[in-house]
Design a protein around this nucleic acid. Sequence first.
DNA 1: ATCTATATTTCGAGG
DNA 2: CCTCGAAGTATAGAT
Lengths: 237, 237
Amino acid sequence: MRVIARIATHGGPRSVPPMRLVIARCQVDYLGRLTAHLPMALRLLLVKADGSVSVHADGGAYKPLNWMSPPCTLAEQPGRWTVTNRAGEQLIIEIAEVVHDWRHELGADPGLVKDGVEAHLQALLAEHTAKLGPGFTLIRREYPTAIGPVDLLCRDADSVTVAVEIKRRATIDAVEQLTRYLELLNRDCLLAPVGGILAAQSIAPQARTLAEDRGIRCVVVDYDELRGMPSNDLRLF
Amino acid sequence: MRVIARIATHGGPRSVPPMRLVIARCQVDYLGRLTAHLPMALRLLLVKADGSVSVHADGGAYKPLNWMSPPCTLAEQPGRWTVTNRAGEQLIIEIAEVVHDWRHELGADPGLVKDGVEAHLQALLAEHTAKLGPGFTLIRREYPTAIGPVDLLCRDADSVTVAVEIKRRATIDAVEQLTRYLELLNRDCLLAPVGGILAAQSIAPQARTLAEDRGIRCVVVDYDELRGMPSNDLRLF
DNA sequence: ATCTATATTTCGAGG
DNA sequence: CCTCGAAGTATAGAT
């Protein structure tokens, strides 16, 4: 299985304070891109080795109520934490009562390995252009244009150029994106006429309607099936 | 100051397990919209009262390495947690060693009060339409159309109707959004011709290019300046 | 339930 | 550093 992304949170030796978990009664104010206020209540304060501070309630899934992302500095006074970043944004935590305060050294994390993101879908489709239509061949991946790269540029059985936009889930935005590419590519006399294909694991109904209205063909791709196919890259000799 | 949003994480009496914090050596696999794998390492496992489970390293800001959002169920076996949601996605946590395992009752959170989000910018611009151009007057906010509400509908000095799309930061998507509105509004013989303005605290270069190419005027708005101006709504008597 | 639009989006890659 | 596009985006509101 192909490794698409590896996220190393940090590596190598370091000498920063380890993860800190505080249960405290606190009120919090964020003064930055917006202002946000949290009335006094019991919450979890999570200070990570990267310097980030997050304020969690016992709900709201993984998202904290309030936070400051690194790089930032934590100034700790009695009853008051002030977290500041380079942009001058502040997270001010007034602490009325500390119930617990632990620190734990976790060490560097080996990182996350993902499989099945859009880039992987693109790689697989580039190897199996026949899934887009019989006789399709690849001109190139990430075909550069003035307004950004086209995911795949292909040639169909009649040697007509076809731009392919790939999404895991296609919405109306993907149709607009492909439309912009097509408009630009069709101004190029050496390429025009250029057809369009929207290829995705799932396509929103309204996206399909808009696409077909604009003469863009929609192709639903089965990721697991693609992954199971032998690669064109295999050299037999 | 206007209260724009209040987020209550949960309220009223409840009888669910309280927040649980586990420091453990674990490996994690997510099998869902994609697959993701975390090799064995020491991490923080956070189980909230809402049922969510998140796996944190000592970095990566507030985002967990892996997680499952509620609603989901946690099946706990010796050395193995299996978290499953309704869609059948799974988060499988193999636990080699538990360093700590605490539970803490936090109680309901009074919730977050925000000020300064896009809705506030819209309210301020509605009160100060002159910032969009001399002689501009407001027809209405959230002008309804078949494909959604237009942020502001105005009349310029020449009594021409102008649709205004407001963003904190405008990208190409905002231009497309406004373009769809304009296309629709210009089919209405009672309104046409309708002009367009993209108003934002910042405008991405490509968004500006595309907007101006389509005859949409771009206006950069200073939120703090607007906030400091006296309101038209003030009644003096 | 589906779709639209917002978000302190966050995050990573590329120029 | 900015710019841009993807994300298990998540989340709330409207239809």
